[in-house]
Design a protein around this nucleic acid. Sequence first.
DNA 1: GTCGCAAACGATAATCATTCTCATTTGCAT
DNA 2: ATGCAAATGAGAATGATTATCGTTTGCGAC
Lengths: 143, 143
Amino acid sequence: MNELEPEHLKSAGLKSTLPRLKVLDLFKNGQARHMSAEDVYQLLRDSGDNVGLATVYRVLTQFEQAGLLVRHNFEGGKSVFELNEGTHHDHIVCMQCGHVEEFYDSAIESRQKKIAAELGFEIHDHTLQIYGDCTKTKCPHRR
Amino acid sequence: MNELEPEHLKSAGLKSTLPRLKVLDLFKNGQARHMSAEDVYQLLRDSGDNVGLATVYRVLTQFEQAGLLVRHNFEGGKSVFELNEGTHHDHIVCMQCGHVEEFYDSAIESRQKKIAAELGFEIHDHTLQIYGDCTKTKCPHRR
DNA sequence: GTCGCAAACGATAATCATTCTCATTTGCAT
DNA sequence: ATGCAAATGAGAATGATTATCGTTTGCGAC
């Protein structure tokens, strides 16, 4: 098991508690990059930790506000989170298997800045998702 | 009052009922272009119509499936709908007042197609929203 | 090291948007 | 006009998320 990093919590003004370290570890060392609150809850439960669902929601929101995680609202009605590694990117989501790929396109980014400026907006944030199928015939990430 | 257009419902395989005509009229002749289910419900109630919220949700979903309306999932947890006029566009949403502007950028569109192809995806749909403030100092659309 | 206390926790109730159920009403073809 | 399946309205049910509250815990002061 890799080392947990309570200093990240400290610097965010958050006490270094057990549930918070567990959640952070899941995102840093777990296998899934994008997880919903329920996903996190189930994974912690499966590994024998007695965490409450409410705590998971609280911690995810705090981590989002602290800039440790980024929240996405993909279709399907539940928020998914991923580690904030400082590099902005957009997402393309497979509607067959739920697989998520990330991409970054500087041309799209700069067009957005230009458009916002033209319309008199100051950008806070933006979100671009493409929904589709992994391939035309067979989804390689089917679960 | 402008004329309602039951033939749109007919061609979509939907009976031309009173609640459906009322909802369609709101989108065609109402003042707000983007409305949530609750918005539609309240507006119909305010104009004296005895519609049920469940019916509003049903009708909006049917209209979406029939291609009469487009559904958007902006931040805030509720779906908003707008008339489908055939022209795809993306949205920039003011986080102060909720005002929505539409835009279309062919450069962004073509980059998306290219990216999806490179990643082996067949695009079903995509959604791009920019969140920001109307202006730096004072929001002209504040309500 | 332990004491104290505010912060954080877990369980569960509450909330919010949305969907489902079902008895009643209504378009529409006969 | 009549019949009946489709549509409606009221309210219950659901799923995700948030608030409440009594208990536990991290951590600084002693």
